[in-house]
Amino acid sequence: MGIFDYFRQPRQKSASVAKERLQIIVARERAARSGPDYLPAMQQELLQVIRKYVQVDDDAVQMNVDREGDCEVLELNITLPDDKE
């Protein structure tokens, strides 16, 4: 492969990376907006509690409020690290 071919490699186009990142962050921010005001604080506190026991990333706690009929369902997702070492 010549030196010029390197620059022509079809790496993923930067616009499509931008689009993917935007779709994720915008979806997350919309969910945060539509949820109750205490959600971000609750998320932080849950993170602290979990970290007493296991070291997790900043985005390990994901919360979502869904409406099902008359009920609001709080969905909580905690990603634990996979400790293979």
Binding site: K13, S14, A15, S16, A18, K19, L22, Q23, V26
Partner: peptide, 16 residues
């Protein structure tokens, strides 16, 4: 730039 994939296209922004 949008056609070269270096800039978000009208459709991309519209979709988001």
């Amino acid at each position: 730039r949008a056609e070269r994939g270096e800039m978000l296209s009208i459709e991309d922004v519209g979709e988001i």
